[in-house]
Amino acid sequence: MNQPLFLTPVFQERIWGGTALRDQFGYDIPSDKTGECWAISGHPNGQSTVRSGEFAGKTVGELWDQHPELFGHYDSPVFPLLTKILDANADLSVQVHPDDSYANINENGELGKTECWYIIDCDEGADMIFGHNALSKEEFTSMIEKGEWSDLLRRVKIKPGDFFYVPSGTIHALCTGTLVLETQQSSDTTYRVYDYDRTDADGNTRELHIDKSIDVTTIPHTAESVEPKVDSRDGVTITTFVEAEYFTVHKWEVNGHASFVQDKPFQLASVLSGAGTLRVQGEDHVLEKGMHLIIPADVETFEVEGQVELIVSHV
């Protein structure tokens, strides 16, 4: 093999979705309410497939099960990470995610969901909900029951290039006019706390999960500060946003020519802007905005040439 795995993403329609995934990345989206691009995914609710080469047509989950050597024989029953791009054309529900132990018991063995966001783009003056103001579970429960949302929820201003680490147990919501690359555990478990009393075309509200939300929310709110580390060397500036239990996330800004050594079991990469060439064992692969790929374990060294910005993650 010894070559990168370029992937075809899966798109998910959401009531809060829009057209930014088409407008900014040129994707062929299913509708004008497309909220999520599952770019690198082995989750059964939406699996990316390999575009070409020896494993063309295989899903990430199939490769994980059938070819553990591609992933350095990393010890996990499922492909552990999930990369998404989210188009919040309207406010997302206010939500919280469980940790591994709670999800394992209450969600049929699903992983918990710790995630992080890189703000690709957002409206001028945009904000998001990140955390809450309750000091005890009793106060948290009371404020929910009374609908005291403006007092309960914390809002923070955002701008393009910002990065947020969102551990399980964190109350959060992306808000209108935000385009985000999300790196997360491979989980599709979300507990909705509040959905602005929205209704669908038939007048139905979406299901809330108040009891589970109260169970899993971290109270009082604690925010882990993100202190990016920047390393510049020949042809590349590498910003490390987070090194956490489930994933490490970097931004690679290549300007010219850069060489890399694969010192991880595998790496996930998404091209945010620009264009370039990925060279592996003398073979060139085009890198263009909106491409997503896995650099497997057997790619020992590689080079990137051009003017290109990537978000890269690994376990």
Rank of each mutant, 00 (worst) to 15 (best):
H73G: 05
H73I: 03
S76T: 03
Q24I: 11
V60F: 02
N104G: 14
G61L: 06
G112E: 01
F71V: 06
Q66D: 14
W38M: 12
E36G: 10
H73E: 11
A56K: 15
L92N: 02
C37E: 11
T49W: 01
A39P: 00
T34K: 10
G112P: 03
T83F: 09
A90H: 10
I29K: 05
E54S: 14
S52W: 02
I40D: 02
P30H: 14
H73T: 03
I40F: 07
G72T: 09
F71W: 08
H43G: 11
K58Y: 13
D75M: 09
Y74S: 01
Y102G: 01
N106H: 15
D32C: 09
W38K: 09
T34M: 08
F71D: 06
A90D: 12
G112S: 08
V94M: 05
S52Q: 15
P68L: 05
I40G: 03
L86E: 02
S52M: 11
N89D: 12
N104W: 00
F79V: 05
V94S: 05
V94K: 02
F79H: 02
I85D: 00
D99S: 04
L111N: 15
A56Y: 08
H43C: 09
R51T: 12
S76A: 12
P80V: 02
A39Y: 03
R51C: 10
T59W: 01
D99T: 04
G53M: 05
V96P: 00
D100N: 14
L82K: 02
L82P: 01
Q66Y: 09
T59E: 05
D32A: 15
Y102F: 14
K33T: 15
G72A: 05
S48K: 06
Q24L: 14
E54T: 14
E69F: 15
P68N: 03
D99N: 14
D75T: 10
G53Q: 11
F55I: 08
E62S: 10
F79S: 04
D65P: 00
K33D: 10
S93C: 06
C37Y: 03
D28Y: 09
E62W: 06
T83H: 05
D75N: 15
H97Q: 06
A90F: 07
P30C: 13
Q66W: 03
E107R: 14
E54W: 01
Q66G: 08
V96Y: 00
S41I: 08
Q24T: 13
S52F: 13
D100R: 00
D75F: 00
N106E: 13
P77T: 08
A88K: 03
P98D: 00
S41T: 10
N106Y: 08
I29P: 04
I85N: 01
Q47S: 12
L63K: 00
E36K: 10
I85K: 02
V94H: 02
D65C: 07
S101A: 15
